[in-house]
């Protein structure tokens, strides 16, 4: 059965304009059938169907991990997943949202952990139960190579875990599928922090600037700006020297305020 929706089926605010003649398709929300415009994302389709979200809705832009959803298509044994705010509905999709999945988050003191595999062994020892089944990678809505970073963790390659999990939104889908009951995303968070704390070198320039500020070097310069008449302040603003986009080797001419 298909029907069309009127052109004025626009909704205030997060308006999705539904073009005239848009086909209506059946989707099954937790087994219950609704007809929705085929162009909508799962999130907007559920709102169209009458749902008002409290859970399972966050940034509505694919980065917060609140709306993880798993689904199957009729006649297909495979399990699919996606973010409800990013995934367009398909005919006869059977979906359920995972608004929360319990995960083990260990409390630790970053100052007291070593920068090697023992940091993982002492916090998330279950990581080493990984059976390399790849269910986590298959379910990841961000297309991360989750199983590969688990392997990197087991090898103690903390930097690789950090790099490979960079776009993790911590939605929990990997954890929900893990037969070894690991907590991939919390372990990866630990590794990113270890990498940032110990793997990446500290910026000497930032440290130097902090000391200069503490010594009061810039106070008089800012006070000078604060004491200027508006016209003079505007003049300084307009006459700022502009660092070019490709600025290799560029040096500012004015140096007394550096």
């Amino acid at each position: 059965m298909t029907t069309t929706v009127a052109k004025d089926a626009m909704r205030k605010g997060d308006k999705t304009v539904i073009a005239e003649g848009t086909r209506m398709i059946p989707i099954y929300v937790m087994g219950k059938r609704y007809f929705v415009p085929e162009t909508l994302t799962i999130q907007k389709a559920m709102e169209y169907a009458g749902y008002q979200f409290i859970r399972s809705c966050g940034c509505r832009g694919g980065i917060c991990g609140a709306c993880a959803t798993v689904y199957r298509l009729e006649g297909d044994y495979k399990l699919y997943s996606g973010l409800a705010c990013q995934t367009v509905v398909q005919p006869n999709m059977y979906l359920v949202q995972i608004p929360f999945f319990p995960a083990n988050k260990v409390a630790y003191d970053i100052e007291k952990l070593p920068y090697d595999v023992t940091a993982i062994q002492t916090t998330y020892p279950e990581t080493f139960r990984c059976v390399q089944c790849n269910a986590c990678t298959k379910v990841c809505p961000m297309d991360l190579q989750v199983m590969d970073y688990m392997a990197a963790a087991i090898r103690g390659d903390i930097e690789a875990v950090a790099e490979m999990s960079r776009s993790c939104i911590m939605c929990g889908l990997c954890t929900s599928r893990c037969p070894a009951e690991t907590n991939q995303y919390n372990m990866a968070e630990l590794c990113r922090r270890l990498y940032g704390r110990y793997g990446q070198k500290k910026s000497q320039q930032v440290a130097k600037r902090v000391e200069e500020i503490k010594a009061g070097k810039y106070d008089p310069m800012i006070e000078e700006l604060q004491s200027l008449p508006l016209e003079e302040l505007k003049k300084r603003y307009e006459e700022r020297e502009w660092e070019p986009v490709m600025s290799e080797g560029w040096e500012p001419k004015e140096t007394k305020y550096l």
Binding site: I110, R166, Q200, S203
Partner: peptide, 14 residues
């Protein structure tokens, strides 16, 4: 940095 946030850095940490 001290909390372990990852920044886009050069190899020498800048």
């Amino acid at each position: 940095e001290s909390l372990g946030m990852n920044f886009d850095k050069t190899p020498d940490g800048e």
